[in-house]
Design a protein around this nucleic acid. Structure first.
Length: 947
DNA sequence: CCGAATACGATTTTT
DNA sequence: TCGTATTCGG
């Protein structure tokens, strides 16, 4: 039961109002997530008599990160309420994909292309994908150009599918049709298509419509101010079909994604969507984050905007005190150099200044401070100043991956094979890496091996599996270039420094491995080896260079104590005791519009409703909201600064917004104090302490398996991000899986299938994304799937009436911040006379190992999730190997099995927190390990690599 | 002093 | 390619 007294009256109102559509207008720091989590818990609690189960609620968030946060808060509120895995909390895209794959058999074998893979795909299919159809409006003989204009094509396709618009001209209609057809033929979605298809699916009298009609009672939409037209249409459709209550949460003043077509008019006009009495609007106007000074100055700024909900005003909840002339400052300098130097000095000065938060007083430390930027270009000189002062910092968006020495060396392998680099030059690139301990003889061996891989060699020319990923892995392996080769063990200080550098180096190599993987997923063996190599190098030079960020010092599972440098967009939803906003010049904030060739040279502005959304409004309201978001990140301290940029004549004049901020007053005293150098030396500095930040993590079984078997493998895959080389056989396991899922689902409904119908299932669900046409492998793989699936169906169809769950999502909460997620293939329930037995079944293709103890761990983990779902402990666990069609005997499951797997998970999580990524000592594990080529255990245990 | 011509510099990012 | 700042010319 939730304790209502800890919520404010308006928050309580938001929790208790459940008979109307609800708009919660939540200002910055108003406890929005807490309120939503409280509302969900209240609805679920049987004591309140709503008769609402987890599957009756859907909550949309804007990012996966926000979803994880909300999910955790809800789980902490509801205690051990059962079946929480059935409540969807996630992004709109995620829900659409799940809805399509669960309800339309056709889409089970589809996968989603992210932006970079989409661009690769478009360039590969330039001739047929409709890009040539898109012509310049001013000169209809000029089409979009391959490679150069691919981003524009992506943008145009997004806009015409996501906006509200007029009928398209013929050429664009053709382009759209060709684009969608080409993607579909290769079983790919792009992000917009997921939403479009989900919409279509709900228009028909489909499974999906029936499903939401029977299940859905409450649809919660977070960050509703950032919704774009297609998302609005989708939300409306879901509501119409299900007749659910709609709960939207957001802040019209924090809409900052207008270049994606998002529009705060949807939240402003929410009440006109339904009949007057059907909706209620509740403001959460108390800001529990920031001082009076911060809230007043931000409110003064944003009140200059016209497009916002009338008569609302943010008030401080008084959790922070405001000290006039000290907390909020605005300084002007003669040059950017001076400005940056002052920033570094300010940081040095404020460290240890007492700050009270959650009723505890501690000294300000690095991680309490953030520097917010409008553009990344501002970061470089700031970083230099911080380095001069030895101030630790984190940035997450600088594009310099390809300029690092390790990536130059790795890329050298391919320029060498292409013939643009001498062998001696390549060798030098590797030998000159800092702190390296690479053996000359080993390097020669690796280079000699590389010499057998020139694409022009007769024996290579006909190789259908010319894998660049393999070339990289072989080189690393043969030269014995491992993370430990770069660590100096001679003295502790050197050890620490070289260890950090080695981690960054391998993080970057891991990123590079992902770059190769992105390229090869789309282009795997679709051409001759030499063309494959050529197009990879072109991809690197023309596309990838400004796309992949450089590795950070930290790994994603820990937060170091450092100053955070980020864009205002990235800071959304975060809070810091100290916020610095430098560079407040016109053309920077507010930024000037971008020049150059753009979408509107190809797409008529008239066709798109509210087209100005995409270009930024002339009143600069969008940019004002951005500054508003930046200001409201601060709990107490705020330093604004400005200086003319001597190197750039665009950035010389002070931002117009400064004048607006100057008008902010408390009583008759201005809040913003200009050119008053605050000196914190009069303060009694106290112990610097980082605030404990709860870091939510979700683990799936694949990740846990790595930690169980070899923590170092977890590091290689989940921290560094190395990707395994692709091959033509990939897809067997997933094909089996999808076939069985369809058979089971239809079988569960009582359908009995003929041999022809089973064949149709196989045709629909089997997919080998990397298979070439001209090989004997194709019929072999298809026959294998067909034969085994048919046999499986014949053997087990009589048993299908006992199926209880197919592809059931499960989750298991380890503690307040750790959630384990999974999906059980099949659960059978056999019984009579009120007595029954439950079996959890996991399918493996014969290429996977089914007998290993690790598979039993997987099943035990699923049993934990099954208990969460049903409250019952399953009786048996069983693995079914499809390839051999050999039924394994079910094994009895005991309660002690659940306890042992639970403590095993806890141990694994401890290893992650403490960063003890040790290599396994089991030789057998290494022999089975796919990543052994990247690990020094290969040498230690003398393992022969089989490929 | 003002309009026209010319020189210069050039986002934000999630799914 | 286009928006903005600066310079040029009357």
């Amino acid at each position: 039961m939730i304790d209502l007294s800890k919520y404010s009256p308006n928050q309580q109102d938001a929790i208790l109002t459940n008979d109307k559509h609800l708009r919660i207008v939540a200002c910055a720091g108003s406890g929005k997530t807490t309120t939503v989590a409280g509302k969900v818990a209240y609805l679920l609690d049987p004591i309140n008599g709503f008769d609402v189960a987890p599957e009756n609620i859907i909550a949309f968030t804007y990012t996966e990160k926000a979803a994880a946060e909300l999910k955790n808060k809800i789980l902490n509120n509801v205690g051990n309420h059962r079946g929480m895995a059935n409540m969807y909390i996630g992004t709109i895209h995620g829900w659409c994909l799940k809805a399509l794959q669960e309800n339309e058999y056709e889409y089970q074998s589809f996968s989603v292309l992210d932006e970079i893979k989409l661009k690769l795909f478009i360039d590969k299919h330039y001739d047929t994908i409709g890009m040539k159809e898109v012509k310049k409006l001013s000169n209809s003989t000029v089409p979009l150009r391959r490679f150069i204009d691919t981003s524009l094509f992506v943008q145009i396709m997004d806009i015409i599918r996501e906006s509200d618009r007029q009928e398209l001209p013929e050429n664009l209609t053709r382009a759209k049709a060709q684009y969608e057809k080409t993607l579909k033929s290769k079983k790919y979605f792009d992000f917009s298509m997921i939403m479009e298809k989900a919409m279509e699916c709900m228009e028909a009298s489909s499974n999906l419509s029936a499903r939401i009609k029977s299940d859905l009672k409450f649809l919660i939409v977070d960050e509703y101010q950032d919704i774009n037209p297609i998302q609005e249409r989708l939300i409306n459709r879901i509501q119409e079909v299900s007749q659910c209550k709609l709960v939207v949460v957001g802040d019209d003043d924090q809409n900052i994604y207008q270049w994606r077509g998002s529009n705060n008019r949807y939240i402003i006009d929410f009440e006109s969507k339904f009949d007057n009495s059907a909706t209620k609007s509740i403001p959460l106007s108390t800001n529990y984050r920031s001082s009076d000074g911060i809230t007043k100055i931000a409110e003064t700024l944003i009140s200059n905007n016209q497009k916002r909900i009338p008569n609302k005003e943010m008030k401080s909840g008084g959790l922070q005190n405001f000290t006039k002339g000290q907390d909020i400052l605005y300084n002007r300098y003669d040059s950017v150099t001076d400005e940056n130097e002052a920033i570094a000095n300010y940081i040095d000065n404020i460290l240890g200044v007492p700050f009270t938060d959650d009723e505890e007083t501690r000294g300000i430390t690095f991680s309490d401070i953030s520097i917010l930027l409008r553009t990344w270009s501002k970061a470089e000189t700031i970083v230099e100043a911080l380095e001069r002062h030895n101030i630790p910092y984190i940035t997450a968006g600088v594009n310099q991956l390809f300029e690092t020495r390790e990536i130059e060396a790795a890329l050298g392998l391919f320029t060498y094979l292409y013939g643009d680099l001498e062998r001696s030059e390549l060798k030098e690139l590797w030998q000159k890496l800092p702190n390296n301990n690479i053996d000359n003889d080993r390097l020669e061996i690796a280079l000699n091996d590389l010499d057998t891989k020139f694409p022009k060699l007769p024996e290579v020319e006909t190789n259908w599996e010319y894998s660049l990923q393999n070339i990289l892995w072989d080189f690393i392996s043969l030269a014995e270039i491992y993370e430990d080769s770069f660590i100096d063990h001679t003295d502790p200080d050197l050890h620490k420094r070289t260890k950090e550098r080695a981690e960054i180096m391998f993080f970057n190599l891991g990123k590079f491995s992902q770059v190769i993987n992105d390229f090869e997923e789309i282009n795997f063996n679709s051409s001759s080896p030499s063309f494959h190599l050529f197009s990879f190098l072109s991809f690197i030079n023309y596309v990838a260079r400004d796309y992949y960020p450089e590795g950070w010092l930290n790994n994603p599972y820990t937060t170091p104590n450092a100053v955070q440098i980020m864009t205002i967009h990235q800071a959304k939803g975060l809070e810091f005791p100290v916020v610095l906003i430098p560079g407040l010049n016109n053309n920077y904030l507010p930024s000037k519009k971008r020049g150059g060739l753009n979408v509107w040279h190809f797409l008529d502005r008239e066709l798109i409703e509210e087209q100005s959304r995409y270009e930024g409004d002339p009143d600069k309201e969008d940019e004002r909201r951005l500054l508003y978001v930046a200001l409201t990140r601060s709990q107490k301290f705020l330093l604004l600064s400005q200086a003319p940029d001597l190197n750039n004549r665009l950035y010389k004049v002070e931002s117009d917004y400064i004048q607006e901020l100057t008008r902010a007053k408390i009583g008759s005293f201005p809040i913003l104090i200009s050119d008053h150098k605050q000196d914190f030396s009069s303060f009694t500095k106290i112990d610097q302490q980082s605030k404990e930040k709860v870091k939510n993590i979700a683990l799936d079984f694949t990740t846990l398996k790595d930690i169980f078997e070899c923590p170092y493998r977890f590091k290689l895959i989940s921290v560094f991000g190395f990707r395994y080389p692709l091959n033509q056989r990939m897809g067997v396991g997933r094909s089996f899986h999808n076939c069985l899922m369809e058979l089971h689902k239809r079988g569960k409904e009582g359908e009995s299938m003929s041999k022809e119908e089973v064949n149709e299932v196989v045709d629909r669900q089997t997919h080998f994304p990397y298979l070439t046409n001209s090989t004997i492998l194709k019929p072999r793989l298809w026959d294998k799937v067909r034969k085994n699936v048919t046999e499986y169906y014949e053997d087990t169809k009589d048993d299908f009436s006992h199926i209880e769950f197919v592809e059931q999502d499960i989750q298991y909460k380890v503690d307040d911040s750790i959630l384990v997620l999974g999906r059980i293939d099949l659960i059978k329930k056999v019984g009579s006379d009120g007595k029954y037995e439950t079996t959890i079944i996991e399918f493996k293709s014969d290429e996977e190992s089914a007998d290993l103890p690790i598979t039993k761990d997987q099943l035990k983990l699923y049993a934990l999730g099954h208990r969460e779902l049903t409250g019952e402990i399953a009786d048996y666990i069983m693995t079914y190997v499809i390839g051999e069609n050999k039924v394994k005997t079910p094994e009895k499951l005991y309660e002690s099995d659940l306890n042992s797997i639970e403590s095993k998970i806890r141990d694994a999580v401890d290893l992650i927190w403490s960063e003890r990524f040790l290599r396994t000592e089991e030789k057998k594990t290494c022999q089975e390990c796919f990543q052994v080529r990247l690990c020094s255990n290969r040498v230690q245990h003398d393992i022969k690599v089989k490929r």
